[in-house]
Design a protein around this nucleic acid. Sequence first.
DNA 1: GTTTTTACCGACCAAGTGGTCTGTCATAAG
DNA 2: CTTATGACAGACCACTTGGTCGGTAAAAAC
Lengths: 205, 205
Amino acid sequence: MDKNLKRMATMQRMQVTGLELFYKKGYYNTSIDDILKELSLSKGAFYHHFESKEDFFVQIVQNLIVRKMYTMLIEPIEGHDNSLDLITNCFENALETAVHNELDFGFVLGNFINEFNGKNPEIMKHLNDILKIWEVNLVAAIQRGKFNGYIDRHVDSEGVAVFVMSAYIGIRIFMVENAPSARKYRFMSQLRQYFKSIQAKPETV
Amino acid sequence: MDKNLKRMATMQRMQVTGLELFYKKGYYNTSIDDILKELSLSKGAFYHHFESKEDFFVQIVQNLIVRKMYTMLIEPIEGHDNSLDLITNCFENALETAVHNELDFGFVLGNFINEFNGKNPEIMKHLNDILKIWEVNLVAAIQRGKFNGYIDRHVDSEGVAVFVMSAYIGIRIFMVENAPSARKYRFMSQLRQYFKSIQAKPETV
DNA sequence: GTTTTTACCGACCAAGTGGTCTGTCATAAG
DNA sequence: CTTATGACAGACCACTTGGTCGGTAAAAAC
């Protein structure tokens, strides 16, 4: 029992540090030794707990990235308030953590999709699954918004979802290095403008 | 004289193939040998023409990427027609080449910014310069649009530029693998929606 | 108390990596 | 014709990579 706890603790430490370094330096550009050095652990420890570097990463995706996405981007947009407000607030918060250079979901994912695209189909599948989950939940939120009378019934829910996701992933790349805070402000302001244009018109039915 | 021509031709071949592979597999994940193998050239040839891998890449950025950006994203939005139409058409074309998996500018840049961020400040400087050039030209186009009465004078030109650039870079990442053509269509449709919301209102002034 | 299992160590390996260096051969200059 | 030079070849080097494997010590199981 105690052994199992220790095992979990060590694996968790490795995964957290692993994600941090993979995110900062990229997967292929981060060696297992880099991670191990950070934790003062040895190769033996690593291969005792994980089959391979790839297996290690997949577990990080499933344990850390998926959970982060749920807490940051999915749970906040559930509920029956105005979907557009929920999404706006959600992005506001997510981008704020991004400004402080913490691990937010968008850039992490954008990063890795870039990196693995065309190279590692196995990992790409996992990453695409995550995107898909986000998309599905966004579409659902938008359809709730239509149903509840907040969003114009004529808009294409999937289109809005794709557009909004693109914008979010894009701004995260764009916030790198240059005045992230100012860019966040400008971005959010235009997002609101866009949302205003798809909200339910008073005169419509 | 003839020697110089041959030199230029070989360097050009190396750069074109280099960009192709760097784009497909990433900079750090593409070895010089990979490029050389593709061209049936030797290490000697490479280091005869370029100082280092980094120097090689910087030259690719300056010779190929910058030029591609001008022809794809800057020249098409110059002129005094409706800026929003110009940008729309420009994106339509750029994304169409993207659908066919050719080298379009947006993803190439997004890719590399992701890859070099935090790792190679020297190269990041070059990449950020390119983004800046694009941004400046977009802002200029939007301001022309205001001046010519196509765009609502109250909108924040820089905000629109940031938003539009984000969306473009984002959709390019998002078009990877999953139904790029359908996503392009949905994206463009929402972009038009957004543009409609910032165009000059008939009743204004 | 002995045996088995678990967590971890670290030397080692083969396969690459960016980069160097000597050599060769065609062309151009003298 | 001789000489110098530029374009390329490819063996080589130091180093890093992901991964292996025999060992050790402590805790669990018996």
